[in-house]
Write a protein that binds this DNA or RNA. Sequence first.
DNA 1: CTGAAAGCGCTTACAG
DNA 2: CTGAAAGCGCTTACAG
Lengths: 338, 338
Amino acid sequence: MEPLDGLRTITRKDIAREAGVTETIVSYVINGNRYVKEEKRKRVEEAIAKLNYRPNTMARALKGKKSNHILFIADDIQGEYFGKLISEIDSLAYKHDYFITLCADHRDEDFVNRIYSKFFDGIVIGSATFPLANIQRLIDAHIPIVLLEIRDYHTIEGTFGLINTGLYEGAKAIVRLLSEHGRKRLLFLDRISSDGKGSDLSDWRLKGFSQECERLHLEMQVVTGCRSEEEMAQKVRDLLATGFVPDGLVGRNDQTALVGMQTCKRLGYSIPSDMACVGFDNSRLCRFSEPTLCSMEIQQKEIAKAVMHMLMHLMDHPQDGGHLEEHLSTRLVMRESV
Amino acid sequence: MEPLDGLRTITRKDIAREAGVTETIVSYVINGNRYVKEEKRKRVEEAIAKLNYRPNTMARALKGKKSNHILFIADDIQGEYFGKLISEIDSLAYKHDYFITLCADHRDEDFVNRIYSKFFDGIVIGSATFPLANIQRLIDAHIPIVLLEIRDYHTIEGTFGLINTGLYEGAKAIVRLLSEHGRKRLLFLDRISSDGKGSDLSDWRLKGFSQECERLHLEMQVVTGCRSEEEMAQKVRDLLATGFVPDGLVGRNDQTALVGMQTCKRLGYSIPSDMACVGFDNSRLCRFSEPTLCSMEIQQKEIAKAVMHMLMHLMDHPQDGGHLEEHLSTRLVMRESV
DNA sequence: CTGAAAGCGCTTACAG
DNA sequence: CTGAAAGCGCTTACAG
């Protein structure tokens, strides 16, 4: 923790001595919030450069300034979806002098307490399984919060940001597409998750899928609660053996769409004539499969912009009341599988 | 930033008042570093629970305690490789009460200064392009550092950790495999990067590849400096048109291996008989391509363990001198493409 | 225009 | 076994 010479940390005091001014002046030069005589300012700046001084962020934060850390809670750090999103957010955040702390949605009771230790200037919740009660606690603590794709936000009170990533409409659009291609019986393949927890009906993709199927009078089945790709493949085979013969398949993400597509191919289905397949995310996976996979692209870059914009607004206007909302849209990328 | 009631932050003082003890006692109860009479300890603990008190991490850090933040610098946040790795590190770090801050390898001059603002208890450098001079500065500042897959570390002085992820041996093993399968002319497909910067010879994969080709008297070519998959596909086509007809292909990662494989397939090559293909990372991509892709698995879980172990060792023994080193190994996953 | 001083929330050496 | 007090590095209201 000892910078540079390994002997002593350079502080305001050192700069003040070096520049022949008081600490107060140094502070005002650094923060630029009071006029300082040109000549003194210059001496201070030179001293800072000479001693390679960096203000201690901790001490600053203690005095009510910001920590410059934003927390991002994700439920699937590994996927390409979050990878791209985080990458975009990082690049915007960096410009505004923030660091992004990334962390999985840990389940133990202590998680929210740790977060809550006044460390983060803002929090982005990208996990659909983060308990609403905990979200409420963080909001009550007046920490700026942006929710990504969160479900029943209606019960949440207070000021927060909400980003609708367009998954609901996206899922509906996929169903319409398949219907227009004459498909009558659709299969939805939910997430694969090591804890076996599937999405419930408040999940936007599943909700959009089932509501549109209903509206268009399509038959539908959902495969969920799988812990591995193998388990999902098995469930698909079991389902097909029951006599339900789908002619269209929608994956909650590209991975599950591909597991389904591959399983069907091996059973002799021809893609897309017997079975049209569509995924979500438009990840790299889509371009290397055979046939290539049609997928709904989620606009990570736009999401990242909206996230940062909202977060910064909430930080500047903490007591606004009510919630901000931004609605983004998805984009269908056609490929051979439809 | 105002917890709970939104009016005032709960501090040591509140707990002390509530429990009828001094702040000193509260501190010792929380840190557990001095005996406190059972009865007082109890009252303090109750007060903490009742007021839902959380110590201010900033203030703690100011007094020389740790910030409990570890910085991870990655050069490709988006890929599955870092996704998995970060995910594993997060889960270990969480157990030890650390948060992981993730950040791309920003190129501007100010980057190292920002890092350097005494904020991080440790830093993991997973970017091969992070300047050595900056690494040296951070080491000189006595910040515990762990280097991942870094090249010419011999010029670095001081205490740091080094994790050899086995890429060098892995690349050599791939070349031997191909040679055993009778392949004589190999193509290496380097990273795709938006800035067009390719790997140099200090990159472990490329180094292992070329040294082993030389040893086994195999012809070799390298495609590098590509900004997009399209550009890489074009360069591969151009190369094949020159008369160099490879019979084996090695990707620096699965993505480039697949771009190469797909390009060759479209040109009429049959895989693997005309062209054997091998990637690095063993990502999801491998299982969905046709044919499925043989790939060298990198052991993210083991790497994560080694990283955290080293980092914690360096934090506890700051002045050890010399560097720690751990050597991990890769594992070849055979599939249809060889 | 500028400086001395109080205070942010914590830790721990020191003196009982 | 315990408490009063100094101090970590900063910011800014207050009084010149």
